[in-house]
Each structure stands twice: as structure tokens, then as C-alpha cells.
Write a protein that binds this DNA or RNA. Sequence first.
DNA 1: CTTGACCTTCCAGTCATTGGAAGCTTTATC
DNA 2: GATAAAGCTTCCAATGACTGGAAGGTCAAG
Lengths: 139, 139
Amino acid sequence: MTIGDAAKASGVNAKLIRYYESIGLIPEAGRTAAGYRVYSSSDVNVLRFVKRARTLGFSIERIQILVGLWQDRSRSSAEVKRVALDHVTELEAKIAELRAMSDTLKHLAHACHGDERPDCPILRDLEEGGGSCCHEPQP
Amino acid sequence: MTIGDAAKASGVNAKLIRYYESIGLIPEAGRTAAGYRVYSSSDVNVLRFVKRARTLGFSIERIQILVGLWQDRSRSSAEVKRVALDHVTELEAKIAELRAMSDTLKHLAHACHGDERPDCPILRDLEEGGGSCCHEPQP
DNA sequence: CTTGACCTTCCAGTCATTGGAAGCTTTATC
DNA sequence: GATAAAGCTTCCAATGACTGGAAGGTCAAG
């Protein structure tokens, strides 16, 4: 299998496969006499594993660990679970951050007439640093 | 005011102020005879505006537009609202994406014993590409 | 023998910063 | 006035995870 075949079979594009090899996420592929990379179906399995892990938002660094655990027959499921739950913690933190941004903006946009007049609570918030809002208690 | 003073007053660090200038987000600052950048309190207001907008997750590109609208007395609030709601749309899309990842992982982690044994549904999912899950209908 | 579809490497760019190095200027202290 | 520390300047490089392009080698079909 050439890199193009491996790309089709795994769903990871050829450019990305080379990149993964260059950063050491996957081992160096074998080569033909002409220097073309050669892949086996087990290499494709690794690529699929990586692809699925990326789909779930794992960083390359954590995927390195997961691939290591996957290959390690004496792993404990506790180790895998810990890596997964660390990632969940980060995802939840990011979600909370984006949620707060979105809610604030939706609130401001709701208060904005959205007509031809220049007056706008969104700009007022940005100007004032968001410190004072209609719903906050006045000290 | 020097760049350090402006940094303290705006909460945007000096390095970042120079970067914002270099990409044209803020106008070029005036200079002293020795070449030091000089800032006024209105420059600081712009920096504070930018900082607040970044806190709300706006891209630099959109902040350019927002600053433009802010400075434009003949703007319509509709324009501002549209920029804000476009951003909300993107935030919600990103949240949904992360939510899906997190939920999938929580589900898999829940099904994982997390003990010393190697058997692990998380690795099984990564191996199989997440296509088959206990709760999905069997064709 | 040529065309076109592959493959190779290397370099550059993305986004929004952050860090460091090397070299000025200003301010404070002695 | 000398000196040291703090702050300013520019430029270059790195981050994460890709993506794109240029320049050139290789392979199978017509």
C-alpha cells in the first residue's frame, strides 16, 4: 500500500500521515526502492485509531499515550480512563467558557434594537468592559 | 504614557499592544524623540475595547469591524448586532461539537471499569471508529 | 515517448499570542 | 558623573494541528 492507498483506507489524508510521522506520532513507514512509503493494514488501523481519537478532540500528546496503552497488553483500563476523563475535564472547561461568552452576547444582542439607529448595548458593553449590566446589583 | 503605562491602564500587555499595532488592529502609536511609543487615554480606551471583545471570544478580524463601527457615529445597531450574532452562531456550533465529544467520552468512561484489567470500552471505541455502540440499533 | 497521476522533500502560512536575544534610553542611586 | 536597573526598541522563533504550494522524481497507460 502506498500512502495514497493508506489515506483512502484510513480516512487520514496523505499530507497528514506524513505530518504524523514527522512528529513521531506514528512510526516511520517502510520504503520502496524508489523511496515511496509503504503501509500495511495494521498501519492503517493505527491511522484509524488516531483519526477517531482526533474526532473526539484528544490532543496529539494524549493520542500518543492512548496509542501506547492500546499496544500495551498489560495496560490497566484505569490508565485509559484517567486519560479520557482528563480530556473530559478540559472539554467541559472549554464548553463553560464558550457558554458564558455566548450567553453574554445573546443577552446583549437581545437588548439591541438592531435597527438603523446607532445606539447599541453591545458596543456599550465593549466600551465599558462589561462591568455594569442592567441586571447586576448596584453597590 | 509609555507602552508599559498603557498596558497597565488597559490590561493588555505591552507585547500584545505592539502585536496589535503590527497587524493593523490599532493605529500606529506616536513616538518620542527616542522612538518610544506614546499613548493617550483614548488609545487606552481602544485597547480596553479590544480586550473586552477578545474576552467575549471575537476574532481579531471581527474586532476590526467592531472597532470601525464603534468609531462610526453613523453606524446602525443592526450592523453591530449582525456581527455579534454571527459570532454567537459560531460559538454555538463549537459548543455543540465539544458537547458531543464530551458526552461520548463520558458515556465510554462510564462503561469502563477503570481497574487493573486491560479490557476497556474506550479503546474499543477508538479501535472500531465509534461506529458500533451498545445503544445503537442493530441492522 | 509523453501524459498524467502519483510520490518525494522543503518551506510558508494559518490564529493569537508568548518568549527570548541583542541593543537602546531613561531613571534612580551612589 | 558613573553605574545599575528598569523599561523601551526590533527581530526571530515557537506554540497546535494542520494545509497549501513549489520543485522534482517515479510509475502505468496509451
